[in-house]
Design a protein around this nucleic acid. Structure first.
Length: 473
DNA sequence: TGAAATGTTGGGGCG
DNA sequence: ACGCCCCAACATTTC
């Protein structure tokens, strides 16, 4: 392989041009660059909304590359076989990619790197998805962090790499290899609810992410510390969706936040801390991957969780028909937009795992079905935090009261009236979208009365606390 | 990044 | 002036 041979960039959750170390290195080399996206088993296994959103992201990224006279080559199959075929087709001498951190991707990528090196190919993995590689942060004792605040203190002054510029040009190969038609991948096949309902809420692609970051830094970040907690206000950064697919890098968000901090914007530090929560989730997933599948505190396996997904109250929770306005509003926001305000996430998680005493895995899986900003590490950490089974988790006895939360965080009922139609003479248009999105078999309509509470808050709370008190661990 | 029960304090009304 | 009660406002404890 000569030093002029093409470099394949294997894109995964890094669908951007700006601040992309692997792409940057490849373009710097002066060699032709072949961007590829591979639909392998891990992509096939994605759940409905994340998979659909990924399809949109791949399409948008191909468009962005074409503006640079490049393109995204799409191939389906086993990743190492696809790469070997592509190398044979193009004479590529190198494969670069940005690292992922979930155990399945890590295993796959490790095997592929070894196989490619055996073939004499220059296989290189780069950072970019995280500001702090999980193995570079350790406690005095040499272990990993299990509590957020010490983790924050350990990283906040470490320094974050300055974002790399987007390549001015991406050298094309002499001929482009064959590429699948994205439509043939059917990435939206599992979206059995209306993708067209969710679509208007999608913030697609790198440019949209950049302008959102800019707008947030110009306006929202000043009040972020207060307004981020109020779901009726557009007070969050709204970047989770783009961070999830790497349409923007955390480094760029961090440096923007740092500049806001220097400008005296009050909320900027809170924003930086939120970015570091994402890093903390990856840190935990890397050092303790079973956080994805098992109670991180193993004793919680003994807890009398309801684990049957078919129960009526689970169905009511998923459908946003529990009779608790805050819970239902949040669950419908999730269904309609593919995202949920963080305050809502805490409330619905507390309600499911405490008032309904359902296993957090039920909630984790539903979020994985519905979230267009789905992130394996954050989702698992969040659910185990809420359930009390995770590291640095909220104690089980800390039960959110959805009614009290309404008075604290949705005083004017802006949020609940935006997402709930029943019982209102003049429902919000977003609340009505829910009825376009749901499957007909749910058999409900906007004119129905608002559902009765499926459980009294007092009873649910008492039952959960009794179970906790009588636990045998 | 709770909520509810219980405890403490201090001001005001009143005999 | 004093004791007593009431109660709101906090603080602490408990789950």
């Amino acid at each position: 392989m000569s030093e002029t041979s093409p470099i394949i960039i294997w894109f995964r959750r890094d669908l951007r041009l700006t601040d992309h170390p692997a792409l940057h290195a490849a373009c710097d080399s002066g060699r032709p660059v072949i961007p590829v996206y591979i639909h392998d088993d891990l992509v096939a296994d994605l759940r409905a909304a994340p998979k659909w959103r990924l399809g949109l992201g791949v399409g948008a990224f191909d468009d962005a590359l074409r503006e640079k006279s490049s393109r995204l080559v799409l191939r389906k199959g086993n990743a190492i076989e696809v790469l070997r075929k592509l190398i044979a087709d193009t004479g590529a001498g190198a494969v670069y990619w940005s690292r992922l951190y979930d155990p399945q991707s890590t295993k796959r990528d490790t095997e592929i790197k070894e196989a490619l090196k055996d073939d004499g190919i220059d296989a290189k993995s780069f950072g970019g998805h995280l500001m702090f590689e999980p193995w570079t942060v350790e406690t005095q004792a040499g272990g990993y962090y299990k509590v957020y605040t010490p983790f924050w203190n350990a990283v906040k002054n470490k320094g974050v790499d300055a974002p790399l510029s987007a390549p001015t040009s991406i050298k094309a190969p002499e001929t482009w290899p064959q590429s699948d038609d994205l439509d043939s991948w059917n990435m939206g096949a599992a979206m059995d609810r209306g993708a067209d309902v969710v679509r208007p809420f999608v913030q697609l692609g790198e440019k949209a992410a950049q302008s959102r970051l800019g707008a947030f830094m110009a306006r929202g970040v000043g009040d972020y510390k207060q307004t981020r907690d109020i779901p009726g206000v557009d007070g969050t950064s709204n970047l989770s969706e783009n961070l999830s697919l790497g349409e923007i890098s955390p480094h760029q968000c961090w440096h923007a936040g740092q500049r806001a901090l220097e400008d005296g914007k009050q909320g900027a530090e809170t924003f930086l801390k939120e970015l570091v929560w994402r890093e903390f989730a990856y840190h935990l997933m890397h050092h303790s991957p079973r956080i994805l599948t098992d109670n991180w505190r193993e004793e919680w396996a003994e807890f009398p969780w309801n684990e049957d997904e078919r129960r009526a109250e689970v169905k009511a929770w998923k459908q946003g028909r529990t009779g608790e306005p805050f819970v239902d509003a949040a669950m419908r926001e999730l269904y309609i937009t593919g995202r949920m305000h963080n305050r809502g996430r805490m409330i619905v998680a507390s309600y499911l795992t405490k008032h309904l005493m359902c296993h957090w895995k039920i909630g984790l899986h539903w979020f994985e079905d519905c979230l267009i900003d789905w992130d394996p590490a954050s989702n698992a950490m969040g659910w185990q935090w809420s359930a009390g089974s995770g590291p640095d988790a909220t104690p089980y006895f800390r039960v959110f009261n959805p009614e009290t939360q309404l008075d604290k965080f949705d005083k004017n009922r802006d949020y609940t009236s935006r997402w709930i139609a029943e019982g209102r003479s003049n429902p919000h248009e977003d609340a009505l979208r829910y009825f376009d999105a749901i499957p007909r078999r749910w058999n409900i309509s906007p004119g129905d009365p608002y559902p009765e509470k499926i459980i009294s808050l007092d009873e649910g709370r008492e039952r959960a606390l009794d179970s906790y008190k009588n636990r045998n661990f």
